[in-house]
């Protein structure tokens, strides 16, 4: 259940930013979460519901941008969507891949008041 500590980090970041802006409520929070960030969204939802209680995010609308993972084949140079680290290159069948995107885990923006 590392999703709980992830959520705690998100709350910490958001509250810090909101306080710096002299706000007391986080109305909206926008997150970038890549499909290969290691986050299980069901666990995240569960942890979120518990952890935001009595914080500035208690009633926040949460928007999640799921960033689809993409890789580049180091053998043939093809770029393609992947779901797992062990997916093969659809062009040449090799597994020497570098991940281009999809591991993001970021607080993108906040709307505070």
């Amino acid at each position: 259940m590392h999703e709980l500590s992830i959520v705690m980090n998100i709350i910490q970041i958001a509250e810090q930013q909101a306080k710096a802006a002299n706000a007391s409520v986080v109305d909206e929070i926008e997150l970038d979460i890549g499909t290969m960030s290691g986050i299980d969204m069901d666990s995240m939802d569960f942890a979120w519901e518990q952890a935001v209680k009595q914080t500035m995010l208690q009633n926040s609308v949460r928007k999640v941008n799921r960033i689809k993972a993409k890789a580049k084949c180091l053998d043939c140079g093809a770029e393609f969507a992947i779901e797992k680290y062990y997916d093969a290159c659809p062009a040449c069948g090799e597994h020497l891949l570098d991940i281009l995107q999809g591991t993001e885990l970021r607080v993108k923006s906040l709307t505070v008041s």
Partner: peptide, 9 residues
């Protein structure tokens, strides 16, 4: 107020 955070969790 909208804040651009762009901070890694």
């Amino acid at each position: 107020t909208i804040i651009d955070v762009e901070q890694d969790v």
